[in-house]
Write a protein that binds this DNA or RNA. Structure first.
Lengths: 352, 352
DNA sequence: CACTCTTATTGCTATATAGCAATTTCTGCC
DNA sequence: GGCAGAAATTGCTATATAGCAATAAGAGTG
């Protein structure tokens, strides 16, 4: 339980808590006394107190002591919220999915009188460090930035989107990728499909692995043997969807009768290749996507896909972030929302 | 000489000076080395360095070292730029076109050490008024907000995108919609098309009217009589593209052999309907779009469309805004960039 | 030449301690 | 009670030192 947090930060939190629950009201004991009380070195307690002073929670006067700053609204809030999007994410903020997320976040945040700031054009999270212009940040990134998240978390309220950090103390909002994918594949199976291809994303995140595992789970549930040659490793791009389709169409044993795609972009790419080969969707091959991006309903044939409840995701994430900003402890809170299968025209009963 | 200043402050000043006169350029020696050099304790030099870091003069990275932060920003700036997107614009920031613009703007702005703030979720520009959090704003809106722009302009640097205000003193960056559309239609004519339908956007902005006029101009240039029944008033949405296609396909005189669309979304909507009617694109009907949104190259068949030079637009707009922020007068400057016709698969020679 | 293992460097945390200057509090005297 | 002087308290500066985690650089190794 003794977290890996530096001591002074833990002390700092304890003092914050003590102020909140009224244990400390006005004047704090002297630094030397506090050090004894918390059983840390003098310089350690000083570091904690100094940071609290920086934050405007305490104020100190030499020879008089340290006091709680009783100001209602801390004038420190910038009323800005940051949105950090991993630069490794395809197309960045112009990605059809994340632009929807961004839009929903802005809407939610605006309701509370806040503005939304975008951080998507950097390799790391350094721009967030020492950032005095935001009160908190919603982060969408790959596990590779996890260490940086830990750091940011120390001084900036943070909520994760889509991926869950292995440090489970950071609050997060995700969708149930496993269930959604499993459901989609089960749907295909219910249409009589047995040879079902899967186009995965980059397998470097929970999101991707969950979707793959959902696919595998559905096969397992219906006693369809797993076949590695039916799994194509994509990278979420249209191109990889095209590549995957070419691969499937060229399979010696014949193409699968259905293809499950880990996102809509790859589904669209795959559909293009299938159609270019004069095959009919869904009559010859069924295609199912994931994300329900705007265009999916508009192409021919309209794509059957899983829709994430983006508005809900945004609402949850923003609420959690605001709680965190207000100081309410919401560590360890993880919201998992269900995605919903939207049945359109791109999947149908298998030809016999 | 031994001033009464604390040692760490004197050290701090010395470091500042060293940076100013070029003795220190980029990387500083390690903290332990510096301590020796200045003949103070390790913790003392650390205190000096930390304060300099707080002030944004230095930045430190564990295992890499301490570095001078090279940027000379006037301290008055917030280093934030706003992007106002008229809430009347379809899909807002998740619109495939504007999300590309936004992405390009962020990239450009980041290079200058600025952040980008989104204002898209409001009916008017009130959120911009009294806004102390941005140094300038790039605005994308319909003429209906022109009066508000005048007001904002009084206290905030502003650059218009896409639309030109009738008050020509406000700097703007646009593309040559007239030429681009004229060129596209000329291209269709060169493929032998004579009955060319046009799906317009909402005719309440210059952008739209220019595109329509470009279409008409090409017809005129090639002595093809104008036919009002071939002009369908859309609203930039997929749905209106679908409606338009249904309208064209049901025309008593037969459908046009080609359709020019004022944007890609309507083109995609139209294509869907055409394909649902078992017609072939481009063999039966050619379709040309406008914008070159991401998905246009990925659908089947890949859409022939006009691409706006989005990176250039962003660069121009941001540069102009920065000039304006710095006080350089750039009123009356209007940059008009050419769009480029991207020929793909959705248009071909007319059937005879 | 590529790869692995080791070593060195770096900033960060933490502890212990000492003296300073300013102020408050206590003490004793009248 | 009033007041001067001593003592205690307070936060601040400064030093010295030790170990940590992460990374970069170097040294071997195949």
């Amino acid at each position: 339980m003794s977290e890996n947090l530096p001591k002074y930060l833990r002390v700092k939190q304890k003092i914050k808590d003590a102020i909140k629950d009224g244990t400390i009201v006005d004047k704090l004991p002297g630094e030397r006394v506090l050090a004894k009380e918390f059983n840390v070195a003098y310089m350690t307690i000083r570091k904690a107190l100094n940071e609290l002073q920086e934050e405007g929670i305490l104020h100190k006067t030499t020879t008089r002591g340290t006091f709680v700053s009783h100001r209602k609204m801390s004038p420190k809030t910038t009323n800005n919220i940051g949105f950090f999007l991993d630069s490794g994410i395809r197309q960045g903020i112009s990605s059809p999915y994340y632009s929807l997320v961004f839009k929903a976040l802005e809407k939610t945040v605006k309701k509370a009188g806040f503005n939304l700031l975008l951080f998507s054009d950097s390799e790391d999270m350094n721009p967030l460090k020492k950032q005095k212009k935001i009160d908190g940040v919603i982060v969408c990134c790959f596990p590779r930035l996890e260490k940086q998240i830990q750091e940011i978390k120390k001084f900036l309220p943070i909520v994760l989107l889509d991926n869950i950090a292995s440090d489970k103390s950071i609050p997060s909002v995700t969708i149930n990728n496993f269930n959604a994918c499993s459901e989609s594949v089960a749907y295909l199976i219910s249409l009589g499909h047995k040879r079902i291809g899967f186009i995965s994303g980059l397998l470097d995140s929970d999101v991707c692995n969950d979707r793959l595992n959902g696919y595998l789970d559905a096969l397992y549930q219906h006693r369809i043997p797993e076949d590695d040659s039916l799994i194509f490793k994509g990278d979420y791009s249209y191109e990889s969807g095209e590549k995957a389709a070419k691969y499937f169409l060229a399979m010696p044993g014949g193409a699968p009768t259905a293809i499950m795609c880990a996102n809509d972009s790859m589904a669209i790419g795959a559909m293009k290749v299938i159609q270019e080969n004069k095959l009919n969707i869904p009559a010859d091959i069924s295609v199912v996507g994931f994300d329900d991006i705007e265009v999916s309903a508009r192409i021919f044939p309209a794509l059957t896909t899983s829709a994430a409840p983006i508005e809900e995701i945004a609402t949850e994430a923003v609420n959690m972030l605001f709680s965190s900003i207000k100081g309410t402890i919401i560590e360890y809170k993880h919201v998992i929302l269900p995605a919903k299968l939207v049945i359109r025209e791109s999947a149908s009963r298998v030809k016999n």
